[in-house]
């Protein structure tokens, strides 16, 4: 039996997956019935990425907030 413990994806891969998710999100709104929502979704996506980035550096995040 091989080792069942997870091998977490690397940083690059992690970011890649997030961008992939955002791509799908934009596609959902772009091609769907609600293209008018795209700008808002874009804005929220950027915020989401920033938050995800801050989560990745959570130990130093409190020092970064004042800069934002």
């Amino acid at each position: 039996m091989s080792d069942p413990t997870p091998t977490p994806p690397g940083r690059v891969e992690d970011v890649g997956m997030r961008l992939g998710t955002l791509g799908q999100l934009l596609r959902l709104f772009g091609r769907g019935k609600r293209p008018w929502l795209l700008p808002l979704v874009l804005l929220l996506s950027v915020l989401g990425l920033v938050l995800a980035g801050l989560q990745a550096v959570q130990y130093v995040a409190p020092f970064i907030y004042p800069l934002l």
């Binding site: 994806p9 992690d14 997956m17 997030r18 992939g20 998710t21 999100l25 929220l44 915020l47 989401g48 938050l51 995800a52 989560q55």
Partner: peptide, 9 residues
């Protein structure tokens, strides 16, 4: 934005 959107990750 912090969690559920990134369920794939």
């Amino acid at each position: 934005l912090t969690d559920k959107l990134w369920v794939r990750n």
